[in-house]
Protein backbone atom coordinates (compact mmCIF):
# COMPACT_ATOMS: atom_id res chain seq x y z
CA UNK A 1 0.00 0.00 0.00
CA UNK A 2 1.21 3.48 -0.89
CA UNK A 3 -0.35 6.52 0.77
CA UNK A 4 0.97 10.08 0.90
CA UNK A 5 -0.86 13.03 2.43
CA UNK A 6 0.09 16.63 1.81
CA UNK A 7 -1.72 19.35 3.78
CA UNK A 8 -0.27 21.99 1.45
CA UNK A 9 -1.66 20.36 -1.67
CA UNK A 10 -0.76 23.48 -3.67
CA UNK A 11 2.87 22.27 -3.73
CA UNK A 12 1.87 19.23 -5.78
CA UNK A 13 -0.21 21.41 -8.11
CA UNK A 14 2.82 23.65 -8.69
CA UNK A 15 5.12 20.69 -9.32
CA UNK A 16 2.78 19.37 -12.03
CA UNK A 17 2.51 22.84 -13.59
CA UNK A 18 6.31 22.84 -13.76
CA UNK A 19 6.68 19.55 -15.65
CA UNK A 20 3.48 18.75 -17.55
CA UNK A 21 4.31 20.78 -20.66
CA UNK A 22 7.82 19.32 -20.89
CA UNK A 23 7.07 15.64 -20.30
CA UNK A 24 3.96 13.76 -21.47
CA UNK A 25 4.33 10.53 -19.55
CA UNK A 26 6.53 9.61 -16.61
CA UNK A 27 6.84 7.21 -13.72
CA UNK A 28 6.90 8.22 -10.07
CA UNK A 29 9.18 5.95 -8.10
CA UNK A 30 7.80 5.67 -4.59
CA UNK A 31 9.91 4.21 -1.82
CA UNK A 32 10.24 4.65 1.93
CA UNK A 33 12.54 7.61 1.11
CA UNK A 34 9.87 9.51 -0.80
CA UNK A 35 8.59 10.09 -4.32
CA UNK A 36 10.91 10.78 -7.24
CA UNK A 37 10.63 11.12 -10.99
CA UNK A 38 13.13 11.34 -13.82
CA UNK A 39 12.07 11.94 -17.41
CA UNK A 40 13.35 13.34 -20.67
CA UNK A 41 11.33 15.72 -22.79
CA UNK A 42 10.00 14.25 -26.05
CA UNK A 43 12.95 15.57 -28.08
CA UNK A 44 15.48 14.18 -25.54
CA UNK A 45 17.29 17.50 -25.21
CA UNK A 46 16.43 18.05 -21.56
CA UNK A 47 15.85 15.97 -18.47
CA UNK A 48 13.77 16.75 -15.42
CA UNK A 49 14.31 15.17 -12.01
CA UNK A 50 11.89 15.72 -9.12
CA UNK A 51 12.33 14.63 -5.55
CA UNK A 52 9.81 14.87 -2.72
CA UNK A 53 11.15 13.56 0.56
CA UNK A 54 8.98 11.25 2.66
CA UNK A 55 9.35 13.41 5.77
CA UNK A 56 8.02 16.43 3.87
CA UNK A 57 4.61 14.76 3.68
CA UNK A 58 2.19 15.01 6.58
CA UNK A 59 1.58 11.31 6.37
CA UNK A 60 3.63 8.87 4.32
CA UNK A 61 3.33 5.14 4.03
CA UNK A 62 5.08 2.98 1.45
CA UNK A 63 5.15 -0.70 2.40
CA UNK A 64 7.14 -1.66 -0.66
CA UNK A 65 8.57 0.33 -3.53
CA UNK A 66 6.12 1.02 -6.33
CA UNK A 67 6.43 2.62 -9.75
CA UNK A 68 3.45 4.72 -10.74
CA UNK A 69 3.55 5.39 -14.47
CA UNK A 70 1.08 7.98 -15.64
CA UNK A 71 0.13 10.56 -18.20
CA UNK A 72 1.18 13.83 -16.60
CA UNK A 73 -1.36 15.97 -18.42
CA UNK A 74 -4.11 13.68 -17.07
CA UNK A 75 -2.70 14.03 -13.55
CA UNK A 76 -2.47 17.76 -14.01
CA UNK A 77 -6.11 17.98 -15.14
CA UNK A 78 -7.20 16.10 -12.03
CA UNK A 79 -5.05 18.29 -9.77
CA UNK A 80 -6.75 21.37 -11.25
CA UNK A 81 -9.88 20.04 -9.50
CA UNK A 82 -8.18 20.55 -6.13
CA UNK A 83 -8.38 23.95 -4.47
CA UNK A 84 -5.16 25.76 -3.56
CA UNK A 85 -5.90 25.29 0.15
CA UNK A 86 -6.91 21.65 -0.17
CA UNK A 87 -5.17 18.74 1.48
CA UNK A 88 -4.24 16.16 -1.16
CA UNK A 89 -3.85 12.46 -0.42
CA UNK A 90 -2.47 10.01 -3.00
CA UNK A 91 -3.31 6.33 -2.56
CA UNK A 92 -2.32 3.27 -4.59
CA UNK A 93 -2.77 -0.37 -3.66
CA UNK A 94 0.27 -2.62 -4.30
CA UNK A 95 -1.00 -4.18 -7.52
CA UNK A 96 -3.60 -1.72 -8.72
CA UNK A 97 -3.96 -0.16 -12.14
CA UNK A 98 -4.94 3.26 -10.87
CA UNK A 99 -4.05 5.88 -8.30
CA UNK A 100 -6.67 7.58 -6.14
CA UNK A 101 -6.47 11.26 -5.26
CA UNK A 102 -8.51 12.60 -2.37
CA UNK A 103 -8.98 16.37 -1.97
CA UNK A 104 -10.18 17.76 1.35
CA UNK A 105 -11.15 21.39 1.71
CA UNK A 106 -9.99 23.13 4.89
CA UNK A 107 -12.59 23.52 7.64
CA UNK A 108 -15.27 22.12 5.41
CA UNK A 109 -16.95 18.79 5.28
CA UNK A 110 -16.35 18.44 1.54
CA UNK A 111 -14.07 15.76 0.15
CA UNK A 112 -13.68 14.74 -3.45
CA UNK A 113 -12.11 11.64 -4.86
CA UNK A 114 -10.63 11.08 -8.33
CA UNK A 115 -8.91 8.14 -9.95
CA UNK A 116 -6.20 8.26 -12.59
CA UNK A 117 -5.28 5.25 -14.71
CA UNK A 118 -1.73 3.98 -14.35
CA UNK A 119 0.41 2.95 -17.32
CA UNK A 120 3.34 0.61 -17.80
CA UNK A 121 6.07 2.82 -19.20
CA UNK A 122 9.45 1.81 -20.54
CA UNK A 123 11.37 4.49 -18.74
CA UNK A 124 14.99 5.04 -19.66
CA UNK A 125 17.00 6.15 -16.67
CA UNK A 126 20.10 8.21 -17.18
CA UNK A 127 22.99 8.27 -14.75
CA UNK A 128 23.77 11.85 -13.82
CA UNK A 129 27.38 12.25 -12.71
CA UNK A 130 27.87 14.15 -9.47
CA UNK A 131 30.57 16.57 -10.60
CA UNK A 132 31.66 20.03 -9.45
CA UNK A 133 30.66 22.86 -11.78
CA UNK A 134 32.79 25.76 -13.02
CA UNK A 135 30.10 28.30 -12.23
CA UNK A 136 27.25 28.31 -9.72
CA UNK A 137 24.79 31.20 -9.75
CA UNK A 138 21.89 31.76 -7.41
CA UNK A 139 19.42 34.44 -8.43
CA UNK A 140 15.77 35.40 -7.92
CA UNK A 141 13.64 32.92 -9.84
CA UNK A 142 11.31 35.63 -11.18
CA UNK A 143 14.34 37.45 -12.61
CA UNK A 144 15.48 34.31 -14.44
CA UNK A 145 11.94 33.83 -15.77
CA UNK A 146 11.82 37.41 -16.99
CA UNK A 147 15.22 37.23 -18.72
CA UNK A 148 14.33 33.98 -20.55
CA UNK A 149 10.97 35.35 -21.64
CA UNK A 150 12.41 38.67 -22.82
CA UNK A 151 15.32 37.13 -24.74
CA UNK A 152 13.09 34.64 -26.53
CA UNK A 153 11.58 37.65 -28.32
CA UNK A 154 15.03 38.29 -29.78
CA UNK A 155 16.27 34.82 -30.67
CA UNK A 156 16.01 31.09 -30.14
CA UNK A 157 19.19 30.68 -28.12
CA UNK A 158 20.79 32.42 -25.19
CA UNK A 159 24.51 32.61 -24.66
CA UNK A 160 25.34 32.58 -20.97
CA UNK A 161 28.74 33.87 -20.03
CA UNK A 162 30.26 34.33 -16.62
CA UNK A 163 33.39 36.19 -15.68
CA UNK A 164 34.50 37.60 -12.32
CA UNK A 165 31.38 38.52 -10.39
CA UNK A 166 28.84 38.94 -13.15
CA UNK A 167 26.73 36.75 -15.39
CA UNK A 168 25.56 37.78 -18.83
CA UNK A 169 22.65 36.48 -20.87
CA UNK A 170 22.75 37.38 -24.56
CA UNK A 171 20.55 36.64 -27.57
CA UNK A 172 20.59 37.78 -31.17
CA UNK A 173 18.25 37.38 -34.07
CA UNK A 174 16.88 38.99 -37.20
CA UNK A 175 15.58 42.05 -35.40
CA UNK A 176 18.75 42.76 -33.45
CA UNK A 177 20.25 41.65 -30.18
CA UNK A 178 19.78 41.88 -26.45
CA UNK A 179 21.89 41.33 -23.37
CA UNK A 180 21.13 41.25 -19.68
CA UNK A 181 23.99 41.57 -17.24
CA UNK A 182 23.62 40.66 -13.58
CA UNK A 183 26.19 41.51 -10.95
CA UNK A 184 26.61 39.80 -7.63
CA UNK A 185 24.73 41.74 -4.95
CA UNK A 186 26.04 42.58 -1.52
CA UNK A 187 24.41 40.42 1.12
CA UNK A 188 20.93 41.83 1.05
CA UNK A 189 18.33 42.15 3.78
CA UNK A 190 16.12 39.97 1.66
CA UNK A 191 18.07 36.83 0.70
CA UNK A 192 15.46 35.94 -1.92
CA UNK A 193 16.40 39.08 -3.90
CA UNK A 194 20.13 38.41 -3.91
CA UNK A 195 22.37 37.32 -6.77
CA UNK A 196 25.38 35.23 -5.77
CA UNK A 197 28.02 33.95 -8.16
CA UNK A 198 30.67 31.36 -7.43
CA UNK A 199 33.14 30.89 -10.28
CA UNK A 200 36.08 28.51 -10.62
CA UNK A 201 36.76 29.45 -14.26
CA UNK A 202 35.11 31.73 -16.83
CA UNK A 203 32.56 30.08 -19.06
CA UNK A 204 30.57 30.75 -22.22
CA UNK A 205 27.84 28.38 -23.33
CA UNK A 206 24.67 28.52 -25.47
CA UNK A 207 21.26 27.00 -24.77
CA UNK A 208 17.85 26.83 -26.45
CA UNK A 209 15.52 29.37 -24.82
CA UNK A 210 12.45 27.25 -25.53
CA UNK A 211 13.52 24.79 -22.83
CA UNK A 212 14.61 27.43 -20.33
CA UNK A 213 11.15 28.97 -20.62
CA UNK A 214 9.65 25.56 -19.85
CA UNK A 215 11.90 25.29 -16.78
CA UNK A 216 10.83 28.74 -15.59
CA UNK A 217 7.33 27.35 -15.04
CA UNK A 218 8.73 26.10 -11.71
CA UNK A 219 9.13 29.74 -10.56
CA UNK A 220 6.12 29.63 -8.16
CA UNK A 221 7.88 26.84 -6.22
CA UNK A 222 10.87 28.85 -5.08
CA UNK A 223 11.97 32.50 -4.77
CA UNK A 224 15.50 31.55 -5.87
CA UNK A 225 16.86 29.46 -8.72
CA UNK A 226 20.32 27.94 -8.97
CA UNK A 227 22.19 27.65 -12.29
CA UNK A 228 25.24 25.38 -12.55
CA UNK A 229 27.47 25.39 -15.62
CA UNK A 230 30.66 23.73 -16.83
CA UNK A 231 32.19 23.68 -20.32
CA UNK A 232 30.43 21.28 -22.70
CA UNK A 233 28.13 19.65 -20.14
CA UNK A 234 24.41 20.16 -19.55
CA UNK A 235 23.25 23.19 -17.62
CA UNK A 236 21.52 22.43 -14.31
CA UNK A 237 18.60 24.65 -13.30
CA UNK A 238 17.44 23.82 -9.78
CA UNK A 239 14.44 25.00 -7.79
CA UNK A 240 14.34 23.82 -4.21
CA UNK A 241 10.92 22.94 -2.88
CA UNK A 242 10.09 24.21 0.59
CA UNK A 243 6.83 24.26 2.48
CA UNK A 244 5.24 27.30 4.16
CA UNK A 245 7.42 26.77 7.25
CA UNK A 246 10.55 26.88 5.09
CA UNK A 247 11.32 23.18 5.62
CA UNK A 248 13.18 21.45 2.81
CA UNK A 249 10.80 19.17 0.93
CA UNK A 250 12.90 18.31 -2.13
CA UNK A 251 13.73 19.81 -5.51
CA UNK A 252 13.05 20.06 -9.21
CA UNK A 253 16.22 19.89 -11.29
CA UNK A 254 16.26 20.46 -15.00
CA UNK A 255 19.23 19.49 -17.16
CA UNK A 256 19.64 21.03 -20.61
CA UNK A 257 22.12 19.87 -23.24
CA UNK A 258 24.15 22.79 -24.61
CA UNK A 259 24.34 23.90 -28.21
CA UNK A 260 27.83 23.14 -29.42
CA UNK A 261 29.93 24.62 -32.23
CA UNK A 262 31.19 22.00 -34.62
Amino acid sequence: MFEAKLIQGAILKKILDAIKDLVNEASWDCSSQGMSLQAMDTSHVSLVAVQMKADGFDKYRCDRSVTLGMNLSSLSKILKCAGNDDTITLKAPDDGDKITLVFEAKNESETSEYEVKLMNLDSEYLGIPDTPYSVNVKMPSHKFQRICRDLQQIGDAVTISCAKDSIRFAAKGDLGSGTVNLCQTASADKPEDSVSISMQEPIIQSFALKYLNHFAKATPLSPQVSLSLSPDVPLVVEYSITDDDGSDFGYIRYYLAPKIDE
Partner: peptide
Protein backbone atom coordinates in the same frame (compact mmCIF):
# COMPACT_ATOMS: atom_id res chain seq x y z
CA UNK B 1 25.67 25.40 -33.60
CA UNK B 2 24.24 21.96 -33.13
CA UNK B 3 21.89 20.79 -30.41
CA UNK B 4 23.06 17.66 -28.60
CA UNK B 5 20.69 15.26 -26.88
CA UNK B 6 20.88 14.83 -23.13
CA UNK B 7 21.80 11.15 -23.54
CA UNK B 8 24.96 12.33 -25.32
CA UNK B 9 26.18 13.49 -21.89
CA UNK B 10 24.46 11.18 -19.42
CA UNK B 11 24.74 7.42 -19.87
CA UNK B 12 21.79 5.09 -19.56
CA UNK B 13 22.05 3.11 -16.36
Amino acid sequence: MSQKTIAHFFNAR
